[in-house]
Design a binder for these strands. Structure first.
Lengths: 212, 212
DNA sequence: CTTGATTTTGAGAATTACTTTCATTTGATG
DNA sequence: CATCAAATGAAAGTAATTCTCAAAATCAAG
């Protein structure tokens, strides 16, 4: 809800404490504390075995507060603030650039950002995506939201109808590919170079393009 | 668990009562009763508002039994027996056929079958997919299983490694497209012709193909 | 058709995610 | 400091899901 007013810094995300009121900073701290506690507990106990009560205790807040910040347990682990980042990157792409290329750029840049800022979180999240079906499922939902957002932006840029089937399919295919690549990467223990995998994926997408 | 021994008839699925023991037939009847009761209740009360207890009562079984048949509430609504059907259709495709064409055929034929055998269920399910996020999420998971199954078959046919990234991406893209098209279809109140939508989707996928 | 083995079912208790409500605390502000 | 609005915690409630165990149904032999 309050996410809109924070212009996201492409560099460091959850550290963005500049110019926030005491209240806001406290909220941010709580949010981070909950997430940290969760990742810690999950790492030692596993996802299912970690109850919200434990998380609350570890983060030194009440269970109600946890639910206030993250309505669904899975959200704690997969809510990321990268949607607006991706949106920004996409908006900065030249209008004439082929759509596939724009999306590739967005994906690569976002991943690069995540790997730079919070690599551990990216690994942890990917691991969860591979291991916990409910998280994987929810992640797909998240990505489908991302997909809609990007489609919206591309619609503006190309003057298409954002609801147009073809555009939706195009974007969701690319995002779906990102999902698959990430899972593949995680399944094989992060041994491959993520960006090489993305390159291979792009080859498969080949000259997928929107025609008129 | 017992699903493997039933060679699925391409014509009528849940009616396949031939040569089953009393026990098996009874189980099948229970399964169908639960599903029917669920769809009925959902139609009048909505998905979230329908509790498993109500379902159990309506189907005249105990809640435990419901959970024994469908471990997760969502399963009642989205478990379908079409995976083996799709697999069979795919296996019958000529080895030389382009993969995309094979998959298109599988999709079109399966949908045709569903529309013929249980159109109401297809509509109901699609409606749920559009309206209930948790179902949509789970449906994606289901489709990803389907996707793996089909990839496996295609791997055998083409002599590829079933775990190969490119193959996985290819199949999951096509299945993901089916998902999107179905949602699109449902969002617009089933006004479009489903098969025309699929044709349009195939145009977007264009000459997506696996190269070596 | 009776008996004993096997399967399926139902009853009930326990866990846990999630919701809702309300009183209390805390930061923002004049 | 006094006041208002937002944030928190406490507590009770709902519903999904799991587990356990005993009763009932089916099956396979004799």
């Amino acid at each position: 809800m309050t996410r809109m007013d924070v212009t996201p810094n492409l560099r460091c995300l959850s550290e963005n404490r500049a110019g926030l009121s005491l209240r806001e900073r406290k909220k941010l701290r709580t949010r981070i504390a909950i997430r940290r506690a969760t990742y810690r507990l999950i790492a030692s106990e596993g996802y299912e075995a970690t109850t919200v009560e434990q998380i609350a205790e570890a983060a030194e807040v009440s269970p109600s507060t946890v639910f206030r910040y993250f309505p669904v347990k899975e959200d704690i682990v997969l809510t990321d603030e990268y949607d607006p980042v991706m949106a920004d990157i996409l908006r900065q792409r030249p209008a004439g650039e082929p759509i596939l290329e724009s999306l590739r750029f967005v994906i690569v840049e976002s991943l690069r950002g995540m790997l730079r800022d919070q690599p551990e979180e990216l690994y942890a999240r990917t691991r969860l995506m591979v291991e916990v079906p409910s998280i994987r499922a929810r992640m797909s939902e998240t990505m489908s939201t991302t997909s809609q957002l990007l489609a919206q932006i591309l619609a503006e840029r190309t003057g298409r109808d954002p609801a147009e089937l073809e555009l939706r399919l195009f974007v969701s295919t690319v995002i779906g590919t990102l999902r698959e690549v990430t899972i593949y990467w995680g399944e094989r223990g992060f041994e491959d170079d993520l960006f090489s995998l993305i390159d291979r994926a792009m080859v498969v997408l080949g000259d997928l393009d929107l025609r008129d």
